[in-house]
């Protein structure tokens, strides 16, 4: 299994990761090796097997739709990189 540079760049774009040239070269080599390891899964036929998403196969518990949290906006925003008037600041999106 071998991935080319374009594929690595596309994965990085999907994952929102800025990679430099050296990293792209490194991950191209390493991801190909890891996928070789992963592909050994194909040695067994699983056509008749149902996928297992949760080890205990329990369904998610539901709770009544009631407000249980108090407003802690200031506490949570105190750890944000940039805020103003209760909003998170990011670079301008709409000109």
């Amino acid at each position: 299994m071998s991935l080319d540079r374009t594929e690595i760049e596309q994965i990085a774009r999907l994952a929102r990761l800025a990679l430099d040239e050296a990293e792209i070269t490194l991950y191209q080599r390493e991801l190909s090796k890891i996928l070789d390891l992963v592909n050994t899964m194909n040695s067994v036929d699983t056509a008749a097997v149902q996928p297992l998403a949760h080890p205990l196969e329990i369904t998610a518990r539901l709770r009544p739709d009631e407000v249980t949290e108090t407003d802690q906006r200031e506490k949570f925003q105190a750890i944000a990189p940039a805020v103003a008037n209760g909003y998170y600041l990011v670079p301008r999106v709409i000109e």
Partner: peptide, 22 residues
């Protein structure tokens, strides 16, 4: 997004995010 994540995560974490995304 891209530079905060690219600069903030180390090599092994980026490797696993890349595998997972793929």
């Amino acid at each position: 997004y891209c530079r905060s994540r690219g600069e903030g995560f180390g090599a092994e974490v980026k490797r696993r995010i890349m595998i997972g995304t793929y």
